[in-house]
Amino acid sequence: MLNSLKTELLNKSLELLSKYPLCDSCLGRCFARLSLGHTNEERGKAIKILLLMEIDKAIKEHQIEDLSQIKELLYNMGEIAKTFYHNYFNDEFQNRSCYICDNRIKEFKESFEKKALEKLVNYKTFVLGVRLTDELKNREEKFMVENQLFYYESIKNEIKRDVGKKLASLGYIPEFDNPQVELVYDMEYDAVILFTKTVRYLAFYNRLSRGIPISSWVSKGGESLEGLLNTQLVAPYSEASEYRILDDYPLIAENLVKNEINIKGFHIRKVSKIAGKELSTIFTIRPSKRLYRVTIYSEKEIKDAVKLHDNIYDIFVEAKDFKELREKVKDLLVISVDLLSMSGKSKLIADTYIK
């Protein structure tokens, strides 16, 4: 019985590491709900050491004749397999980045802790949140589903827990029911957003100007919508600041007084107070597709494009987000970009609240 249990866990780990480079934490997180009381890093390291021992035993007992078949596996195990590798191979060991976190999970935790401490100067109780990048969120979900990882834990939970423990050890008090502040780590911008017990409003906005971002930390000393309104704003999803936004995009705001605001090309409509599950839902839903109008310059005639003047054309491009759009138009001479519309559940939410 015990032998079969050991084999099942090791076989799944062997399967994962044969396909993906995984750091200790990200491998350990695949089995996070097993053996409570250990960190994911400890789990991952223990699994890798046991695998190395099993592989070494198989080599010494001549069960593995062609050693080249274990090279990829050792590369994917990372630093812990380096000495083992050099015992059997003379060539250079390949250092690979973790498929999930790109070897940055410690960096994320340290940055979150440092920035959270700066925000907690005047507070004692807290609760933590993490906003993953869309890319990491999608990659992690696909990884978990495709590999049927029933004991998996999100990287978001690991970061919140470990940073929370560090803050608690420094005298701050985790309080889930009635915290003084909520600290949300935005991974995309490497920034911590502080929410106090002020009222939050859901608003929708269009942006007809270019070059003015939502958040002050992105503006790098220039104008931002946050600065113009002198209040804290969080956009669950947005576009590059040089893109105009013609569809209705959501915005979470504190202390919005007016129901309708027009400022520097932004048109903002406040629709309701928001909290709890509604707020969580707004933050977890993204557009499935976005339609962009891209104005380009081309000396060659562009088929299916709208000719505006001489060598200037409008083309219409569907993309998941502005990063995918940039990839699609990277070989074109782009003059300007406008977001025309989005589709998916996010569109339904916008239509529901605005009506």
Rank of each mutant, 00 (worst) to 15 (best):
Y99K: 03
G222Q: 03
N147Y: 10
T295I: 14
E318W: 11
T125V: 08
Y205P: 04
R269D: 11
E79N: 09
P213H: 10
V337D: 00
K273L: 12
G28Y: 01
S241D: 07
I315T: 08
E107A: 04
E318Y: 12
L136F: 12
L333S: 15
K270Q: 08
C23H: 02
D304S: 12
I282R: 03
S13F: 12
K6V: 15
F195H: 03
A58V: 01
E278Q: 15
R210P: 01
F322S: 00
F316T: 10
K115D: 05
E15N: 15
T231H: 02
R29W: 09
H62A: 11
D247M: 11
E223F: 03
I105L: 13
N95P: 00
R43K: 15
I64C: 01
D331P: 02
D310P: 05
F316W: 12
V199A: 05
I212V: 14
D247E: 14
N262I: 13
L339D: 02
K119C: 00
V329W: 00
L251V: 09
V271T: 11
S169F: 12
N95R: 13
Y189D: 13
E141F: 11
E72D: 11
S241R: 14
L256G: 04
G265S: 06
Q232P: 02
K48P: 03
L10R: 11
T83F: 14
L183E: 06
Q69D: 03
D248P: 00
E327C: 03
L51Y: 08
S216A: 09
F108P: 00
H38E: 13
I354P: 02
S341V: 13
S4D: 07
L51E: 05
V329T: 04
A203M: 10
L132I: 04
R131D: 14
